[in-house]
Each structure stands twice: as C-alpha cells, then as structure tokens.
Amino acid sequence: MEDNRPFGRPPPPLRYPMDQHDTPNDPAAATVTPVAARGLTKHYPAGKTFKTVLDGVDLTIAAEESVALLGRSGSGKSTLLNLLAGIDRPDDGELILLGRPLHRLAEGDRTLMRRRHLGFIYQAFNLIPTLTAAENVGLPLELNGWSRDATTRRVESLLAELDLHQAGDAFPDRLSGGEQQRVAIARALAHDPALVLADEPTGNLDSVTGGHVLELLLARARRGGQALLVVTHSLAVARQADRMVVLEDGRLTAGGAELAW
C-alpha cells in the first residue's frame, strides 16, 4: 500500500520523556523538538456511525520554525490544533510535546504542559472580558507563579513592544480588533512558550491590520525562539511561514501542497 503521508517515509522513533527540560526559559528546552506527532487519528460520532476527522497525521515542528497549516473548512484544522494543545485526546497515534508523551498524560499534567510551554492565539481573540489588557497578558505569568513585580515588568515590556502601552488599563471591549489581537499575541508569548498555536489569527481583521499582526507574530516568535503553528485559509498568510502543510480529508498533504492549493 502506498504511503501517502506527507513526509514520504516513516519518521524516526519519538523520544520521551525529558522531564529535565520541563521548565520555562530553560536553554536546554530549546534543543528538544517542540512537537512531534505520528499517526494522529481522531473520530467524532455522526449519528450512529463515526466520522474520521484526522486520519493518521504526522507532523513535526522544529524549534524556531514557523509552519502554516492550510485547509478547507471542516478539514480538521481546529481538531488538530486541539490535539496539539492537549485540550483533546487522539483516538490513536502519538504526540510528543517537548519530549513528553502528551497523549498519555493525565488531564492535570496536560494542563500544566499547556500552562508552561504553549501559547494560544484565536481568531475570535478569546480575551477574558473581565480583565484589562494588561491583566490578560499577565494571566499566564500569574498562573505560572510569577511574582507580582516580575509580572508587572514583563507585561509592561510586552505591551510596549507590541505598541499597546496606552491600552494596558482598557478592557477588551474598548479595544479595536487589531489591538485585541495584539493583546492576544502578547498573552500567548508572555511566558516564553516553546510552541505557539495560532488559529486563524487574522481571520477577524481587515487585510492591512491582519498583515501587520501576522508580521508582528512571526517576528516576535522568531526573536523569542518559539515554534509557531498558524492555522489559516490564506495563502498570503501561509507564504510568510517557513513551511506550509495542507490538511485535506483528515490527512496532511505537503510537498507540492502550495501548488495544489
């Protein structure tokens, strides 16, 4: 049977666990592959049968690499993102995050992995409406037990970097779409995660603002040494990433994906 997987040949065996790298800002963590998935499969019930949303997906993202994930609506992009984030479990396959088998970890450990090593950016921003911009950015730091002063310094620095120093005390409903997404980026990067997952980060923004936000995200991720997976419909957005992969009918097709798309 022909191997249709995007990498042509089976990936090397996955290495885990590597608990000694399980702390943020640990220089050694950067040397470990942030995420490596092999054979990820996910089904959802559809009436009396099951629909296969992901069918044996293999994907590895190296440190400091940005990958664009393209796919039509319903192709399973969000499901893949949820699996990579550990907020959903695969029905089959392996998923190694920073050397640890995320698919085997208990809910509590997966939560801690997300808290320490992942950053999220959503199309709908998903800022906490009851917190100010600065408090939203500081939230992952506080969850990670940063001191009050360290959190304040970090938040101020990020807000300044993302040109949001005037918006720190504003609640999300008082900010423009572009500003909200920049706050979301700041929140995703605040704790220096190894992997940032962005789901249609420019989907709710006009093209100029979207372009600016994407530029900012890519530049900031590169500068911070973070791996980045951007889910998008837009080829223009995808082209700015180091690599593109396409999800179609539950399978990743790469190689000539750019042309095929």
Binding site: A85, I87, E107, G108, T111, L112, R114, R115, R116, L118, G119, F120, Y122, N126, L127, I128, L139, P140, L143, N144, R187
Partner: peptide, 11 residues
Amino acid sequence: GTLRAIGATPR
C-alpha cells in the same frame, strides 16, 4: 475554555 487552554486546571 480559554482559561483551561492557557493552563488553568479543573481544580
């Protein structure tokens, strides 16, 4: 859901 995604535990 967002809070859980960024690392708040069920507890």
